[in-house]
Design a protein around this nucleic acid. Structure first.
Lengths: 159, 159
DNA sequence: TTAGGTGCAAATTCTTTGCACCCTG
DNA sequence: CAGGGTGCAAAGAATTTGCACCTAA
């Protein structure tokens, strides 16, 4: 699930722009942490980002990864997803998209749908609040899990 | 956000049926824990359920609440929601519904939409896996937060 | 230069587990 | 009365924080 080169470039450029305009320092660590998320489509958790970054910046620490990820999220450069019985995951895909989530293994993959994007919200929702964005979650069983185990989906074991 | 009486009754009845057919013991604790989730529309976390149950069963322990909630989830009697920067929350509303989530305070409210329920998934998703259910998440700012603070939504502080 | 960023280690918070006793079926 | 369920206390996992040093601007 690699993101293609030109898209990574685009994301890195935007990263630099946003950091500068927000007066946030462009450190080596932050750059590599963002790159790690930007370069994968796998919605990694903090630990996974940490492991990836460490191959390039061996001295980076896990708490720096956490601090950077939340900062990036505050800056709107990445989004978070934390459904299901799992740790928090991070996503650098900012284009309008939706998620397929495997109930057995937690695999999360992006998908796109014009029909979903154009959905009109019911009027009744205005009584609750003002909606900024909507996102569809499709829950099911991924190809791989469907092959390996035909049992009813049960709760995923933690860790 | 109280659920109406008849609906609670219905949920409690189903709870008893499912437990019996799954050979799961109907203990006082489990019953009150389920009732606590069934009776609110607030998608409480484990701690909140614990506090609520304790007023009726003062000796109940937090770990029993956790064990019961995951059990109920395994039995399909409740669902879990854990998006955003928060702890796991539980939901006894099993009818097809969607969620409005406030980006500032985390308030989560159910809403219904026939249009959403009838959505056709794109063919491309079949390459990823078999979808069992879809659920729309509408992210925005709730009435209360819109009133108290007009600043741009930022990441919620934990706790 | 200097305020913000980092690494380290320790602290928190949320959740799970081992074990002895208890209660439902 | 048997085996699952519970409470307690302690462990574990994920995430955050205090502090002294470091570095981008």
């Amino acid at each position: 699930m690699k993101t293609d080169k030109s898209e990574i470039e685009r994301r890195m450029t935007r990263f630099e722009q946003v950091c500068r305009s927000a007066d946030v320092k462009l450190t080596h660590q932050r750059m590599e942490i963002f790159r790690e998320v930007a370069q994968t489509g796998d919605h990694p958790d903090a630990e996974t980002v940490y492991r990836g970054v460490r191959t390039r910046v061996p001295t980076v620490s896990l708490d720096t990864v956490y601090r950077a990820l939340w900062l990036l999220s505050d800056l709107g450069l990445i989004t978070t997803l934390g459904s299901s019985r799992e740790r928090m995951r991070f996503d650098a895909n900012l284009s309008r998209h939706h998620h397929f989530v495997c109930l057995r293994c937690g695999l999360t993959r992006d998908f796109y749908s014009d029909a979903f994007d154009e959905l009109k919200l019911p009027q009744s929702i205005r009584a609750i609040g003002r909606v900024e964005t909507t996102h569809v979650e499709a829950l099911g069983v991924c190809r791989k899990c469907a092959k390996t185990n035909r049992a009813k989906p049960t709760t995923m074991k933690r860790k």
